[in-house]
Design a binder for these strands. Structure first.
Lengths: 199, 199
DNA sequence: TACATTTGTCTAACACTGTTAAACCGGATA
DNA sequence: TATCCGGTTTAACAGTGTTAGACAAATGTA
């Protein structure tokens, strides 16, 4: 009775095709454009059969997240194996992580909760620049250099900001990060940054 | 004819009440729970009148984003004024930024596109830990210390990760950041981190 | 005062969304 | 032949953002 296995394999195939269809839609039109009916259209079925393969829409997202983590691991591992010394390896791994985020931005967005819906143009605001200027000014003051290179000031701030924004994002998305570690990192980061400004 | 101004003031009031209602809903149930009809319910009107005050739902979000930036600027500025030396000021400003993100998480999420919908429990995955372990191992190798403190390894990695994740997030959400600066920051960060591991 | 026009508000509807229950229909089984 | 069962679809529900049309009350005008 190999037919049982055959149909099981077929089921697995359409399950995969659902995931692929979802990913295609997202790649073209973004996460907010993903709908059950569009997936169904793409695999030439009607929407309800998807529920034979996944509990609900979130089930699909969960599975894609899992795939994303697997893919990321593979790429990081591969990058590691291109180098020999630990320092070079670590560097290559982070570059791979970086590249993954842009090569598979849909995955990265899903995995780490980055901008999945809303507000098409978050640029075109002038308000943020007011706050940024406060920081720029202060960095200039901290720098001993009399005529600080504007590009350098910008880069310092951007580095700062990335670190703290990253810390915040991770905390907002994933609960249960030890708060005392957050504080220590935040303190370390701030101290480090201020020192780093006069490198 | 002061009545013109009176009704203009009234209109402005209900416009504000719409924004307040939206914020209340979001504070309690998150961004994905926000709907025009719920806002209307809260201000005791029906949904269509909201379109007299805002072009559409995104118009509301845009205005809230603007308010968020203003609020952030105020708090950063206030923090700055509690200190006198530039270094202390810069430190206080970043702490204020950090505090803002958690005191007004709805605003921060909206402003910087952090996890506004989807995937209730992104925890409860074991896949991410596989990748994290790759990094942990490598950090341990880079550390000269024979018996590295586990908490220290974790903290180093977390710092790394925050910086790079922050860099990525900003790039994914806000387009138009100079790519050459990204590269320089990424390179600087990675070099700096590796040095910093053996502090 | 009588009529006209504007203003505020609501109802109803459209086209979507995720999800479920019921019907249907073809093929394997008794 | 009759029965059951699995895969599939249709129809529906409740919810979403958004728009057009109706209706009444307030206002302006003759």
């Amino acid at each position: 009775m190999g037919s049982k296995e055959r149909i099981a394999r077929l089921k697995e195939e359409t399950k995969q095709s659902i995931l692929e269809a979802a990913l295609e839609i997202v790649k073209v039109d973004g996460w907010q454009a993903l709908s059950m009916r569009k997936i169904a259209d793409k695999i030439e079925y009607t929407a309800p059969i998807i529920y034979e393969y996944f509990e609900n829409k979130e089930g699909i997202l969960l599975e894609l997240t899992r795939q994303g983590y697997l893919l990321l691991k593979r790429e990081v591992k591969a990058a590691m194996q291109t180098e020999t010394t630990p320092a070079k390896q670590l560097e290559a791994m982070w570059v791979a992580y970086w590249n993954f985020a842009f090569a598979h931005r849909e995955y990265y967005q899903l995995m780490y909760g980055v901008e999945m819906n809303c507000c098409s143009s978050r640029d075109s605001f002038h308000e943020p620049s007011q706050t940024i200027n406060l920081f720029y000014d202060k960095i200039r003051e901290v720098m001993q250099d009399e005529n600080p290179d504007e590009e350098k000031v910008c880069r310092k701030h951007y580095t700062f900001w990335s670190l703290i924004h990253g810390l915040i994002s991770i905390n907002l998305v994933k609960r249960g990060v030890a708060p005392e570690m957050n504080n220590q990192i935040l303190q370390d980061a701030i101290k480090g940054i201020i020192k780093y400004i006069n490198d």
